[in-house]
Design a protein around this nucleic acid. Sequence first.
DNA 1: CGTCTCGTTGAGAGTTTTCAATGTAAGTGG
DNA 2: CCACTTACATTGAAAACTCTCAACGAGACG
Lengths: 193, 193
Amino acid sequence: MFEVLFAHIEEKVTLTDKEKLAISEFFTFKKIRRKQYILQEGDICKNMVFINKGLLKSYRLDEKGGEHITVFGWEGWWISDLKSFLQQIPATLFIDAVKDTELLVISREDYEELTLAVPVMNRYFRILYENSLVTKDERLISLNRYTAEEKFQRLIDYNPEMIQRVPQHLIASYLGLAPATLSRIRKRLGSGK
Amino acid sequence: MFEVLFAHIEEKVTLTDKEKLAISEFFTFKKIRRKQYILQEGDICKNMVFINKGLLKSYRLDEKGGEHITVFGWEGWWISDLKSFLQQIPATLFIDAVKDTELLVISREDYEELTLAVPVMNRYFRILYENSLVTKDERLISLNRYTAEEKFQRLIDYNPEMIQRVPQHLIASYLGLAPATLSRIRKRLGSGK
DNA sequence: CGTCTCGTTGAGAGTTTTCAATGTAAGTGG
DNA sequence: CCACTTACATTGAAAACTCTCAACGAGACG
């Protein structure tokens, strides 16, 4: 049940069996169905979630009900509304399942406890966040001032896995494009896949 | 010389005098002039930089020489090309001084050493990166699918300090807008300041 | 005083969106 | 297994937005 998580942690730091045991006791296993929410705007984000299997999306709704995806999560990724989770203030994001998904869940208090009980987890989360920052930086650069076509081309170049896993209209939302625009771009690029 | 840095760290974790001494030995103080680079595209980013005083910008140049600002840094902020710094690969960013600036500099090796020598710094950097992630998330949401006017309005609402500190054409670059567009928006908003 | 830097403004060009219609695939319930 | 509904991609045409290019003016600085 914890294999995916431990494998992910051990890419970054070394764990003893004792630490693994300690870590495992902070998490709860959970299955959720397609379309099920794990967080809605206005909720306090009580949990950080590690994805064992499946596909989630986090997004914001605008005034007109339009969905703007901030992040996808699949096997081996963490997902949450970090701001809401860390500061325990109302969330601005929704998170729900694109398909049936298996999760490992840790609460805010347990997250803090975990870093105290297993100090090497500070190091793990530090490295995890470093990597996230790098990813987000690249995404920021992509979104800022690239044309629609360039954004999509960069996704193909740097994140081809997403194109295979995620339906096109969700990719459009992720790139900040109208679905119609993305469709036209793909035609122009010769169905760039 | 280290007051600003220690104050910043102590907002997040507690330091003993011994730890402060240890920390201080990893940093080098440096002054740089307006327009001076601390990093250019293609360099390996050797240092992470804490800003004591002044104003820096980090940016990317496009094919036509256009400058796209990713981040500003002033008193109490860290700046670097994190990807280049952590992985020791060529930088994609430029970083230079908007005005004369004072820095505390730490090298890649010393950064790693520091987290080993003063373990509480793992906690500090973890929290620092958590906060950065929250900021970047909000920036991503802003850039993605908001109109120019909404982007600027959100900057006023959420980051008014930047508007006071940073010249308008650099703000335009930061928001991914042409300077002319930002000027027109301000007129529309009644010189929104 | 001359040079730069920076902000403003106008007009036309280009990109992307919106709205609507169409076709197809997939999913659901009888 | 069929009929019905929903979800998704495609396409066209017009509208909306932002950019580019260019000119101009004001202020800072040496």
